[in-house]
């Protein structure tokens, strides 16, 4: 039995030992987290574990005991988007949207670490997330915009 916090809720699961967190999430119908390779290459499955962005496809569900897991479902709600989500929508950073949850989680980690990132910081943070649609221009723009808005809200 593994116990961990998923988006703030305590969950207890009894999953087979070989299950990845990705598989566990999706079997529980947490479909927000996507998958493009299941080998740690694409970043579509990124989630935060104790605040760090990790590929959920390479994270064993059993290793999560006592940890805090955050997925895209924990970010915002309909009509009440997180500033990052809002910025992705506003600047047109979402094309097919398949990489978007991974991008958002990688960006969230970045903005918690560096609230006023440079463009280079954003590019570095997004490097682990492959996107074949946008050419990264608008996602980078979105993260910078979100950072700015979040800073303004604080001050």
């Amino acid at each position: 039995m593994t116990e961990f916090h998923l988006n703030g809720q305590l969950v207890r699961v009894d999953s087979p030992v070989n299950w990845s967190l990705l598989r566990l999430l999706r079997e529980q119908r947490w479909w927000g987290t996507k998958h493009g390779c299941e080998g740690g290459e694409c970043g579509a499955c990124a989630v935060l574990v104790d605040g760090r962005a990790v590929p959920s496809c390479l994270t064993l569900a059993h290793s999560l005991h006592g940890k805090r897991v955050e997925t895209v479902e924990g970010l915002g709600k309909p009509g009440d988007l997180h500033p990052l989500q809002e910025a992705f929508v506003d600047v047109g950073a979402i094309q097919c949207g398949y990489c978007t949850p991974g991008m958002l989680m990688a960006s969230l980690e970045l903005l918690r670490r560096i609230p006023d990132p440079t463009e280079a910081d954003v590019r570095d943070a997004l490097t682990g997330t492959l996107c074949r649609c946008t050419g990264y221009v608008k996602p980078v723009e979105a993260v910078l915009l979100a950072a700015q808005k979040m800073q303004e809200e604080l001050s």
Partner: peptide, 23 residues
Amino acid sequence: RKTPRVDAEKLALGRGTFADDLE
């Protein structure tokens, strides 16, 4: 006009239903 996509919000929320998002 730069209308936001009709589906952008649900995709940002991770609620876009791709082929695999069905049990």
